[in-house]
Design a protein around this nucleic acid. Structure first.
Length: 423
RNA sequence: GGAGAGGUGUCUGAGUGGUCGAAAGAGCACGCCUGGAAAGUGUGUAUACGCCAAAAGUGUAUCGAGGGUUCGAAUCCCUCCCUCUCCGCCA
């Protein structure tokens, strides 16, 4: 959520930035400024009447104590009008604030100046490409075929137990999952992220804090009996640890990592592109999260990107880094890098990580602040990234590393899997 | 799930209708003291919004949340949420 004061002071710039995100309802900006004017006027009136009423109440108290009952009664008779006025203005203020808020949450975050204009994934900017794409023989299999051949993943069994998009990992497939999770966590800890293990369900306030709500309500599983949402990413519980928190400046940056399953309804996704592990309703992911000083957040974003790239390099996966264009970015992000690995059997790029700087968009909702050099509270910046999401990594590993002998496990993983081949 | 107790500032904790944004203590910050530290001692120490060009200042709101009674609510009433204790159930 953008800060009204910022919108008010930077109207032109806000409009210009929203255009980069292809945001059409630009009239909202002026509506918000207008409502904020009304809000301030109303509050000033309300404050003034309240001040009068408070003063009178104090006076009545004094008079009563001194036995001047008649004078007290005289003042009392005047309070009725104030009370009415206070009630009326209070209701007005609440109404205006609600209206303002309803419009404010419709505005996406402003994209960073480096964000390319564009509408679709085709307009994303390829920042770099790294690693060589393996040349596979024409007999090469897609990961869902390999998963069946080596008895690693049972998609049908998942359908029986739960439904499509909830696979059962078996044998070395299950062990590979655990190996990747442990490897990713260990690497994150080496990079200074302290591990947390967090709830997989969150309340409404948390969903709102990281801006899944109200924006993406339909994308989350909802446990109606208890009013809880299954997390779509560990970003939600981890970032919400800092809701309503005021940090000391020297506590920044705060760095956390955590592994969780992630649950996504993925309503409206069908077809060949969702086959196998390409798109699931439940998957595992290691997330890295930072709360940063605003002056440092872009430097930190690069560090996070470098960290994710290091993982991909160590796993020997060809990858590229995209700077998402305005139209493809998330609602709350100011700048997002997507990392994609090259799936050699499918001959396409698969998104395995998304690293974003939210600037103050989340912290404004979370009321996540720090005390700056002047001793004043200031909104912190929040960042997060996948490091990494498992299924597409598994898909790429299986496909790219297939040989006649079997599937070769990358060296860095062997201490975790305790086997070198899937055969 | 049943019964009971309770939610006050960074923390502990006082406050049952006005002098309460809130005692006291702890913590923290700065100063004095000290060779240095501890002890001692002094001062300060919530957040948000508004007014003001801004600082200073000042107004308003906030004692779990929302509503009500009252000239006046942390304090009384109602609803909701949460926590704790006991019983039941249970990985």
């Amino acid at each position: 959520m953008l800060q009204v004061s910022y919108i008010r002071d930077n109207r032109e710039q806000v409009l210009e930035r929203l255009a980069v995100k292809n945001f059409k309802q630009t009239q909202l900006v002026d509506e918000i400024i207008g409502l904020d004017d009304k809000r301030r006027q109303t509050q000033t009136s309300l404050d003034n009447v309240s001040a009068e009423a408070n003063a009178a109440a104090k006076q009545i108290g004094d008079l009563m104590r001194n036995g001047k009952k008649d004078e007290a009664e005289a003042i009392k008779s005047k309070t009725g009008a104030w009370k009415e006025e206070i009630k009326k203005l209070g209701e007005q203020l609440t109404f205006i604030e609600e209206e303002l808020y309803q419009k404010l949450v419709l505005l996406p975050n402003l994209p960073h100046s480096s964000v390319p204009k564009g509408l679709t994934p085709q307009d994303n900017e390829v920042v770099l490409e790294n690693g060589s794409k393996p040349e596979l023989p024409s007999t090469a299999l897609a990961h869902w075929e390999l998963a069946a051949k080596y008895n690693l993943i049972d998609f049908e069994l998942g359908v029986k137990i739960t439904g499509a998009g909830f696979p059962v990992y078996k044998n070395k497939g299950a062990k590979l999952q655990r190996a990747l999770i442990n490897y990713f966590i260990d690497e994150a800890e080496k990079a200074g992220y302290s591990e947390v293990s967090v709830p997989l369900m969150v309340n409404e306030a948390s969903g709102f804090g990281t801006s899944q709500l109200p924006d993406k309500e339909g994308q989350m599983y909802f446990v109606g009996l208890d009013n809880l949402y299954l997390i779509p990413t560990a970003e939600v519980p981890i970032t919400n640890m800092f809701r309503d928190v005021i940090l000391k400046a020297d506590e920044l940056p705060v760095k956390h990592c955590g592994h969780t399953p992630c649950f996504r309804r993925e309503a409206g996704s069908y077809g060949a592109h969702v086959r196998g592990l390409n798109r699931l309703h439940q998957f595992d992911k290691v997330e890295i999260v930072q709360v940063a000083h605003p002056d440092k957040s872009y430097e930190i974003l690069e560090q996070m990107s470098t960290h994710v790239q290091g993982l991909l390099q160590n796993l020997g996966l060809p990858y590229r880094v995209l700077r998402l264009c305005g139209g493809d970015m998330g609602f709350g992000s100011a700048l997002t890098y997507d990392m994609e690995t090259w799936s050699a059997a499918q001959q396409r790029w698969l998104e395995v990580s998304s690293v974003s700087n939210f600037e103050t968009f989340q912290s404004n909702r979370l009321k996540l602040r720090f005390r700056n050099a002047e001793g004043k509270t200031q909104l912190a910046h929040t960042l997060n990234g996948s490091a990494l999401a498992l299924p597409r990594i598994v898909a790429t590993l299986l496909e790219n590393n297939q040989t006649e002998k079997g599937i070769k496990i990358p060296e860095v993983l062997v201490p975790y899997t305790k086997f070198e081949w899937i055969d």
